[in-house]
Amino acid sequence: MMRASFGRKGARAVAGLSKLGRPSAWIHALRVLEFYADNNVNQKKLATHGTGFRLSPLASLRDAHLLTVGKNVRVGERACLWCASPGGAIDIGDDVIIAPGVMITTSNYGNARGALISSQDRKIASVLIGNDVWLGYNSVILPGVTVGDGCIVGANAVVVDDLEPGGIYGGIPARRIGSRE
């Protein structure tokens, strides 16, 4: 009789498979699926979007009923599109690339002295992203900002003011560093 030899990696795989019978493993898997469904699948159903909208399964949407997305828009991994009720809508144009890690938010806390930040009123303002825009890796778009058509926002930039069409922006806060040719 011949014995199978799995080696070290094979032994770990067999041990991992044996854990599938544990109820706690199944409960954890169900919780993960529920979280994913609530934060991505169900939220995507609430958003208004055009054809060719591709959303990474690892992206995060909040209050997606306030999200409007144009045609041929790609949203990368760990990107966060967080609308805030009431009135903090995100409107994204056509042919937009949102790289992994991008954060677009329509809500921010107050920063007045003498009061706890968490107890202050939030600033809620809509965000508009134009057509043919590329938001680079880990860039942040804050409430009330309009990103003009044809803009490129560099990696790790923080956009606090409106961006003029056709510009290339980078830095904290984002400043114009060039123009598209």
Rank of each mutant, 00 (worst) to 15 (best):
L67W: 00
G170W: 01
V14T: 05
A11N: 06
L55V: 09
S56E: 11
G130F: 04
G10T: 03
L61P: 03
A125R: 11
L55G: 01
R180M: 06
I27E: 05
V96M: 01
Q120D: 06
G167D: 09
Y169R: 11
P143Q: 03
G130L: 05
I177N: 11
N40S: 10
K123H: 14
C151T: 08
T48I: 12
S5D: 14
V41L: 14
V127F: 01
L55I: 10
Y36W: 15
I152K: 08
S24C: 03
S126M: 05
S119Q: 09
A115N: 08
V127T: 07
A13H: 13
E181A: 12
K45Q: 14
V160M: 13
S85P: 04
D63C: 04
V41S: 05
I129K: 00
A115F: 09
T48A: 09
T146A: 07
I27N: 02
N138Y: 05
D149A: 08
K44R: 15
L58M: 08
D121P: 08
G52E: 08
G171E: 06
A84F: 02
G136R: 07
Y137R: 10
L67T: 00
L142Y: 02
L30D: 04
Y109W: 14
L33E: 09
K19A: 05
I98A: 01
D149F: 07
A15F: 10
S24V: 15
A29P: 00
K71C: 02
K9L: 03
A157S: 15
K45T: 10
S139L: 03
